[in-house]
Write a protein that binds this DNA or RNA. Structure first.
Lengths: 295, 295
DNA sequence: ACAGCTTACGGCAGTCGTAATCATG
DNA sequence: CATGATTACGACTGCCGTAAGCTGT
């Protein structure tokens, strides 16, 4: 159960091959084989089927432990590295697609005026990747969006001692094609839509898994998955009647062929939060509080 | 940043001494010294002041990473051990003091009738210890209580893939001495009480830290801390006007000298949840679903 | 002066790479 | 038969304990 062994195990599962994992990690094929062997001896069970390489039941369970463990591990290392490093001259801001809103632009302008020598990069990422990158200090400030009950924080997986500040809460709406029978409604209840046809766009709209988690039911099954990060592509699919999606109302304002019907019950809002490693006077902390003040 | 080094580091901080930590871990004093030295070399900063032994700023930050990391670590090991172990013939149920309620008793009776050979132990623990013990499989089923918004889950620190099921939600009340000016009220708002005199009883009542987290303010400062696990001791202190506490209304019903005034705003409930490692057909899983059904 | 942390050093275990071996599609 | 996992083995690193050195109270 050494971290290196777990890292190798995860790599082997992800690559589906011992040799590929060896290449990725800079090891020999033999070393990878030995890692897996000692891990299996340690755990006392077979973790991988060979030919083709795939995790066993116990292996899948171990993965559920190993992935978050390695994330926290990397986060701890990155945090320690930053605490002893020189003050940064460069800032990377990560955003999920729907977290980038108008006030963000102007607040960022203020920051750049006061710190002209700071090189700023904006990077659009999915939620999981953003959390990982903030935790491992690959991005200095993350702006995440998601769904939550009013005033409730977003429910993000725990990746170490990160600071979160609320930035905004705005209404959610169901995006329907203009021709949809429900498009005339002034409000909708989520439970009525459990069996509707949905598009799962986990990086653009609210992931259907979150709807299932909130409702506690098994509905909201995707008819189609959308692996993009722009709203326009998604609304095009919705307009063509491929399914529904849940998005912040504001993002749907000018989308052609779409009717946005506010979500009535349950009371849920689209929330954005700033996420960063607590380090006083860092540009990230300053920008986060400026964003919170402007919100 | 090897787990063994982190474990040693945490032990040294907890014990406040290299030699004591060495004794606890079965190492030599010298080995502990070497562990700390390599850790400090790795991190690139001094982690501990010596004479007296206390963590530095960077050390405190590392502790915030190390403690949850080691918990998850132990949880993963324990889970793997259980997956390969023989089915248990003994069950340990951990409960926080206020989680033990009447229906639990009768449901447990049912289980013991159907499984007469199962040795059952009940262990009362604080919240943090209970979570740790469930994660590390020292207890098979945990019943935790806490405060949450209605239908919201309890916000417990993440300790790996545990299953939680809701058992009950009941009203909360502020426990006041009978002579208190507010004792006649039919309902109270939490915000009005931010500057009241409170008793912090983290293992018996709702911890004041939770009140602060929910309200987002800096109030609810304890005038007195109560480190016990029985309600009677706490209510005695409240009756003697040492301060207030927030508890489930039911627990205050027959307490002498106490007025229990329901909490109106914000809308918060006392919630209990069952917590266990997903292993189908285990006694823990069965009992948890029976408890949920009986609730 | 003494308790307690640090440093020096040697034995031992564990890890990785090379290379030979084995198994499967 | 070829790709790719496993096993054998040797060189090397790193870890822990013993024992001597150092330092603040």
């Amino acid at each position: 159960m050494d971290p290196h062994l777990l890292r190798t195990f995860v790599a082997v599962v992800d690559q589906g091959s011992f040799s590929e994992a060896a290449r990725e990690l800079g090891y020999t094929q033999s070393a990878v084989s030995q890692h897996i062997a000692t891990l299996e001896r340690d755990v006392g069970a077979v973790l991988l089927h060979r030919r083709p390489v795939a995790p066993t039941g116990v292996g899948i369970r171990l993965l559920e432990h190993a992935r978050p463990l390695l994330l926290r591990w990397d986060a701890a290392r990155a945090d320690m590295a930053r605490m002893t490093a020189a003050p940064a001259t460069r800032m990377v801001i990560g955003v999920t697609p729907l977290a980038m809103t108008a006030p963000f632009g102007s607040t960022l302008t203020d920051l750049r005026l006061t710190r002209p020598h700071l090189a700023v990069t904006i990077r659009v990422l999915g939620r999981a990747a953003l959390l990982r990158d903030v935790a491992t200090a690959a991005v200095d400030l993350g702006l995440v969006d998601g769904m939550a009950a009013p005033t409730d924080p977003l429910h993000l997986p725990d990746a170490g001692p990160l600071t979160t500040t609320a930035l905004s809460e705005r209404p959610l709406a169901v995006a329907l094609p203009a021709s949809h029978p429900l498009a005339g409604r002034t409000g909708l209840s989520l439970t009525d839509l459990a069996d509707a046809r949905w598009i799962d766009a986990p990086d653009t709209a609210i992931p259907l898994a979150h709807l299932r988690a909130v409702s506690g039911t098994d509905g909201y099954r995707p008819a189609l998955c959308y692996e993009g990060s722009d709203v326009r592509g998604l609304t095009t699919l919705i307009a063509a009647d491929h399914g529904l999606a849940l998005l912040p109302q504001r993002a749907l304002d000018d989308q052609p062929g779409i009717h946005a019907v506010p979500l009535n019950t349950p009371r849920l809002v689209h929330r954005t939060e700033a996420l960063y490693q607590a380090l006083p006077d860092s540009p990230a902390a300053l920008l986060a509080s400026a964003l919170a003040a402007d919100a």
